[in-house]
């Protein structure tokens, strides 16, 4: 039987409605925090740093800032999106509906990734008010952004299914994603680190994503673009496998 496209659309629309109901808080907080980053790092500190890899520091941090917001936003949106029905009990409807896990995942992950994309776009526009930026490879920029949104939304979806309470829901983003993103070269180039740390950093998957995204902006990267693409594909593949396993075993959802 064909895919239940109507169901995907319904889930997507229902989730987007949640986003638009809380549009102010959804957008104000990322815009505010990004502006603060620009003021602190871009203007205050950045004025004492000339350029990084030939780019003004204020502009250099733009891709990292967008990635920082987009990764945390897609994770938290997707985890909340699927955790909330579990929490309030409306999950019964998803389980009793003629839908399969692919459709459920596309609906929720698609909506979460879209929200994150919105926020990424808003930050990009905000950045224009603070610094001059050019985008060397616009298509690749969008591609990296979309792939990042989708793969972190997949990760968030897994977290949402795993989480047994709101504390756990916050735990992974707080303990893992934020440090990985901060240490992933959002605010610096990996080449600025001492050699030992450069090696350690290479185990951080986020480095590859930020590097690839930054390459799309400035045509300069810490790691080859091909590696960045490989890293994000592997990450996405791992998340998809995990989700496939979750639904095929019914783990934490279906008894």
């Amino acid at each position: 039987m064909a895919m239940n496209l109507t169901a995907i659309k319904s889930i997507y629309r229902f989730e987007m409605a949640r986003f638009f109901r809380t549009i102010t808080q959804s957008l104000v907080s990322p815009v505010l925090s990004t502006s603060l980053y620009f003021v602190v790092f871009g203007t205050a500190i950045g004025s004492r740093i000339d350029t990084v890899e030939g780019v003004s520091y204020g502009a250099f941090i733009v891709p990292g800032l967008i990635m920082l917001s987009v990764m945390t936003q897609s994770t938290s949106n997707a985890s909340f999106g699927i955790y909330f029905p579990k929490f309030i009990g409306t999950i019964y409807e998803l389980l009793s509906a003629p839908v399969n896990f692919i459709e459920i995942t596309i609906g929720y992950v698609g909506a979460a990734a879209t929200k994150a994309l919105f926020i990424g776009a808003i930050i990009f526009i905000t950045a224009f008010f603070f610094v001059d930026i050019q985008v060397a490879h616009p298509v690749w920029m969008v591609a990296f952004l979309v792939m990042t949104c989708v793969s972190f939304a997949l990760l968030g979806f897994i977290i949402g299914i795993w989480a047994g309470n709101f504390e756990q829901l916050q735990l992974i983003p707080l303990l893992i994603i934020t440090p990985l993103v901060f240490l992933g070269g959002s605010f610096y180039s990996v080449t600025m680190l001492p050699p030992v740390w450069q090696t350690i950093t290479m185990f951080n998957p986020v480095v590859y994503l930020i590097s690839g995204f930054r390459w799309a902006f400035f045509d300069a990267a810490d790691v080859p673009v091909g590696l960045s693409l490989l890293a994000i594909s592997l990450f996405m593949g791992a998340c998809l496998t995990a989700i496939w396993w979750i639904f095929s075993t019914g783990w934490r959802i279906r008894q």
Binding site: N4, A7, K9, S10, I11, R13, F14, L94, A97, P98
Partner: peptide, 8 residues
């Protein structure tokens, strides 16, 4: 309306 859509 969501429930209706969910059931295709």
């Amino acid at each position: 309306a969501f429930s209706r859509g969910l059931f295709g």
